[in-house]
Write a protein that binds this DNA or RNA. Structure first.
Lengths: 325, 325
DNA sequence: CGCCGATCATACGTAGAAAGTATCGCGGTG
DNA sequence: CACCGCGATACTTTCTACGTATGATCGGCG
């Protein structure tokens, strides 16, 4: 019959040690004195040691009692902390959010979203990993990520278990070195691009973008085939600055300010695949819910689909018992 | 109705998280499934959060449940540690022993006693302070010490509340520089001493010794009055080495080996006040009891009074309930 | 598509434990 | 020596955790 020590025993022992008097301790606990005597006797029987010295001048803990009480206080602290932490976790105030994202998302939607999220949930640990959209989708279905920000709708095994919503549209622009003939121009055409050496994201890294581009250059894909590829926008811009070629990327590239490159629109404006946010449809994590709230407040540009989906994911965490207050 | 979370609830929640199945968890707890359901529901009501997701594929903790379980495990660890630590404290295996002692005790009885005590009770914190016998007695009655090792029976307010037992006898010897005429002699007489400049412990530091010496030199105390005084044996020996005079001290001084001094007996052998060990008569500390056990085993030289007193102080820490085993 | 098995929740009676009331025993005190 | 404060004990009452029986729900399978 091991482990019969209950939290009540600890609370009673602590009250007794505080008041050094059975009667007053019992009163402070809202019970009568005899039950307190009985419960203290029960703990002492459980522990196998006398925990209090009953003297005519008061009740004092023995050496064993002192050691016991130290641990008892810590145990009760842990128990109350357990309830508090459970509440915080349920409200999404603590926990972990693992996010995979493509580099270009770091330029526009993520700084605002993550900043506000960190502000409202400072105790949520963020695990941020830059990766390609297919990698992120795979990690999401595998349970290695909680949210993914990428381009294109996730494909592959388990993709149907993901919810994906658009969080940002943009279009294709070009970036060139200031020494390039395009420098200074507000816009260039696709025909002019076809004659240039191109720098773009790798097709296997961002298949949605590559497929999109291929459809634009349908007439002559030789420029695309010969393109230098890279896995992140900073590298594309850096290579363009070296005049390796003409960089192609999302309009949010303009947010990167450096003196050795020139950005110009490509006409006609060609809309890139939307930036999408994905998460598992069956994920009920409150941290995710809190994050989606922030996303909803910050990314209402693309479509009402966001609100619709996120409203659908309103937490069903009702508790059967009495609602406090 | 706050704080209704009981240790049982924690144990049940942890078992449920382990088995991910109400029926098996209940079986592992030795109860039926419905009570487990009821108890889990009770915790969830107490905490105000749903802690487990009941899915067709098993029972899994929610985010709140995970946070709760982490704390719950720690709380249970503290509770079981409380019992263990109480037992250890009751057996005197943990705790604190504050000891005051005179420097000369550090030469003979303390190294053996403290060494064996540390060996048998490695987790007891020792607080050792060198001080004069009267200081130690006062600190003892004030509750600032647990044991005192000194010479002479404690006097002063509260001394009657102390138990004092002899733990070592010795006699007076002299120590001189190797350049002193006494060097090389096996023994000298009190008459010879009377003509020398003396070095001895300060009368206000060790009144028992001083009174003893005064009775010996009753015929002529001028040498005593003119004596250089010091509060510890090492200084007496050091001063003797400088040929400041003839040092007087306990025979256990011989345990200090240094080449520049010579020890010689003083005839007739004059027995010094016994080394005494004192503690509060009402002190029921198991650490003290354990220490007294070691003392009893190591200091059976002086008298049977030690055994007698310590047997009287056999712990009355019986526990009313069932004795384990 | 409907039946069956598994699983958890609900209902209800029971037993045990904790709380309440009354009283006793023990020390210290005037 | 009688009194009083305090904790322990005796006994009753109340509450609650447990057990048995049963219901509701969801997948799986024929």
């Amino acid at each position: 019959m091991i482990g019969g020590v209950e939290a009540r025993h600890l609370r009673y022992a602590i009250a007794l040690a505080e008041h050094q008097h059975f009667g007053r301790a019992a009163a402070s606990l809202g019970i009568a004195q005899p039950p307190l005597s009985a419960q203290i006797a029960a703990v002492e029987r459980e522990v196998g040691q006398r925990l209090f010295d009953r003297t005519p001048r008061g009740v004092f803990p023995t050496a064993a009692g002192t050691a016991f009480l130290n641990r008892a206080r810590r145990a009760l602290d842990e128990i109350s902390a357990a309830s508090v932490e459970a509440g915080r976790a349920a409200r999404g105030e603590t926990g972990l959010l693992r996010m995979g994202f493509i580099g270009s998302a770091l330029l526009d939607p993520l700084p605002g979203v993550l900043g506000r999220f960190r502000g409202s949930r400072p105790d949520v640990r963020l695990d941020l990993r830059e990766m390609s959209s297919p990698e992120a989708a795979a990690a999401l279905v595998a349970g290695d990520l909680d949210v993914a920000v990428g381009r294109g709708n996730p494909r592959g095994a388990g993709a149907e278990r993901l919810v994906t919503v658009p969080i940002g549209a943009d279009h294709l622009i070009a970036v060139v070195a200031t020494s390039h003939p395009f420098a200074g121009r507000a816009e260039i055409t696709f025909e002019q691009l076809a004659a240039e050496r191109l720098i773009m994201s790798a097709p296997d890294q961002e298949p949605a973008v590559a497929a999109h581009l291929r459809s634009v250059f349908a007439a002559d894909t030789t420029a695309l085939e010969a393109a230098t590829t890279s896995r992140d926008v900073h590298t594309i811009i850096g290579l363009a600055a070296c005049d390796v070629g003409v960089g192609l990327g999302p309009a949010r590239m303009r947010l990167i300010t450096r003196g050795d490159v020139w950005f110009c629109d490509v006409t006609p404006h060609f809309r890139l695949p939307d930036l999408q946010l994905s998460f598992r449809a069956d994920d009920t994590s409150p941290v995710l819910a809190a994050f989606l709230d922030v996303v909803r407040a910050n990314c209402r540009d693309v479509g009402s689909r966001l609100d619709e989906v996120l409203a659908l994911h309103a937490r069903r965490s009702a508790v059967p018992g009495t609602t406090p207050g």
